[in-house]
Structures are given as C-alpha cells and as structure tokens.
C-alpha cells in the first residue's frame, strides 16, 4: 500500500533521513518507531507529500504521490503529532469544512456519528480554540476518518488523551483495521503499538534499522526465553533439581515466584509442567515472559548507535 524507495531528505548539509525503504502492506497495522529526532515525522511528511524528498520516491496505492496528489490524498486520513486547528471555527464548522473539501457523502451524518463515538457531540458548537488538547486530538481523529480513508497515518495518536479517550481511539482503530484499513502508527507509547501493530519499523538517525513482525523482533533481540512460575511452598530440592534441568539456563527466585530462563529455541513450558507434575509440586501459575517491544526497541537502537559511534570514532582517528 505504502512503499518508499531509498527515501532521503537533506536540510542543507544535515541529512535527516537516509535511504529509507519501507513497505506497508494493505490492511496491516504498521508501527513506525524511533527515538526523538530519528526522522519519523520527516519520513511521514515525505510520504504525505508535504516535504519533497531529496532523493528516492514514495508510492501509495502503487502511484507516485506527486503525480496524482489529489486522488491519493483523498484516500488517506492523517492525525498529525501537532494538531493545528482554526481556533475561530466551531468544531462542527471545522468538520463540515473538511467534509466539503473531501466531498464526503452524508457529511453531517458521518460527522455526527464519529463525534458521538468520541464523546464530542455535545461540544460541537464550541470554538476549537476552546478545546483541550485531548479534545483537539479526538477532533483530529474525526477529521481523519470523515471520508472513510483506505489508509490512516497517525503520528502520536493517543498523546494527550485520558484513559477513556485512549480506549475510544483504540476501539475505532480496531474497527478500522477489521474493515481493512491500512494503518501506520508512529508513537512513543510502545505498549499501544505492541498491542496493535502487525509489523514494526524502527528508525534511528534517519536510517531504517529493522522492519519485521513482533515475534521476529523479539527473536532477534533475546537469546533466551523466560518462564514465570508461581509455586505453593516449593521445596529447596525441587528448586535445585529444577535449575539442573538441561534446558534451564538460569533460575531466579523471588519468594515463591521463580523466573526460569530457558534456551531460546522453543517453548519449554510443557517440559517444565511435566517435571513439576512428576515431583508433585503445586503450580499456582505459569506464564511465558515475552521480550517487550520497549526492550526490543532499546536494544536494537542502542546496538546500532554503539556501532555507528564506534565507526565514526574510527573514521575520525583515520582522518
């Protein structure tokens, strides 16, 4: 659906984005992550045609954005990181303005439906300038969804929202996803991305470091799996024998809770369960501790930053 090919952007001599080639499949939720200043917003703006790339190309729906901007843009919905509104318009006027631009059918009905869903309907006659930041973000969502876009590009979609708002937005995104909408999310709230994204792309210092599914990312990052065991009054011998199992690499005990680290080649919960059952242990709970997206993110970015820093230092020494 969205493809970038060797995308590059320079501001003077500063290279903000270098050789970004990402691919977002139709119908998937794509998480686009990176530390501050990594080039996420720059990349998104190039995808949207707001910034002209120094090199490379962007294709959406198989077409270059600069060739058919009108037709492509009316199939995209955007929630930007920094929402900018016409303060002197009421929310209703604002939405109808964009509905007219996008030639939305049954615009008032559609706008009302979305506003009610996001609990904004009672504030429809309030000037947008009087909205809180959370309300403005929700209004941005309504605007982005008015025309039932095929692609949603969201930059920090839940920033500023209260928990209720986050839930409302999440529900809407799920509904859109189920309806087949392709969604690109850029966010610092990694738990949200982890919960929803099919694939994730991680960018740092203007480069795309990795682009893969969550399980594959975890696999790339962690060398071992961890299983959390809650046992009822475990005996010391049991614990000793448990740690001696061939697939167990280490064992941490926190009172009656054990963290069992195993080899990363498979899920050893069945073997563990068999062992404990054979020893008559009472298992109160067993769960696999997965590597979080946050861990993966930090590990991957730090690793690459270390590599780049080392490479740059060596280059400086040579120079």
């Amino acid at each position: 659906m969205i493809t970038t090919n060797s995308l590059k952007k320079k501001f003077g001599s500063f290279v903000a984005v270098e050789d970004i080639s990402l691919n977002i499949e139709p119908g998937e939720i794509y998480g686009f992550l990176g530390p501050n200043g990594a080039g996420k917003t720059t990349t998104i703006l190039m995808i949207l045609g707001i910034l002209k790339p120094t090199a490379g190309e962007v294709r959406i729906f198989g077409e270059k954005i600069n060739k058919k901007p009108f037709m492509i843009k009316r199939r995209i919905g955007v929630v930007a990181e920094y929402q900018n509104f016409y303060d002197e318009m009421t929310a209703w006027e604002y939405l109808l303005f964009f509905a007219r631009l996008l030639e939305v059918e049954n615009a008032e009905e559609r706008a009302r439906e979305l506003m009610e869903r996001l609990k904004l309907w009672e504030f429809k006659d309030v000037l947008v300038g009087g909205y809180s930041s959370g309300m403005q973000r929700k209004l941005g969502f309504v605007r982005a969804l008015l025309h039932k876009p095929e692609v949603l590009i969201l930059d920090e979609p839940v920033s500023g929202l209260d928990p209720f708002g986050i839930v409302q937005v999440r529900e809407i995104l799920n509904d859109e996803h189920e309806a087949g909408t392709t969604i690109m999310i850029s966010s610092h709230i990694l738990s949200e991305v982890e919960r929803t994204a099919d694939r994730v792309g991680i960018i740092a210092r203007g480069r795309l470091l990795v682009e893969d599914t969550m399980p594959n990312l975890r696999h790339i990052v962690s060398l071992q799996s961890q299983i959390e065991l809650d046992l009822y009054q475990p005996e010391e011998t049991l614990i000793r024998d448990l740690s001696a199992l061939p697939f167990v690499t280490s064992l941490d005990r926190q009172n009656d809770r054990l963290i069992v680290s195993t080899q990363n080649n498979k899920d050893y919960r069945a073997e563990l369960g068999s062992f404990l059952a054979g020893r008559g242990a009472v298992v109160l709970g067993m769960r696999m501790i997965e590597t979080s997206l946050e861990d993966a993110f930090i590990t991957i970015t730090e690793k690459h930053i270390r590599e780049w820093t080392s490479s740059e230092l060596q280059q400086e020494k040579r120079d």
């Binding site: 949207l48 009108f70 843009k73 009316r74 955007v78 900018n84 631009l101 996008l102």
Partner: peptide, 14 residues
C-alpha cells in the same frame, strides 16, 4: 505560521 496549511494539504489541496 500555525501550520494549518499543512493540515489542509494532508487532503486534496495544493
């Protein structure tokens, strides 16, 4: 100044 032009150009406006 207030970047509302950018928001306009997310849509079918050049």
């Amino acid at each position: 100044d207030r970047k509302t032009l950018e928001a306009l150009m997310y849509g079918p406006v050049d």
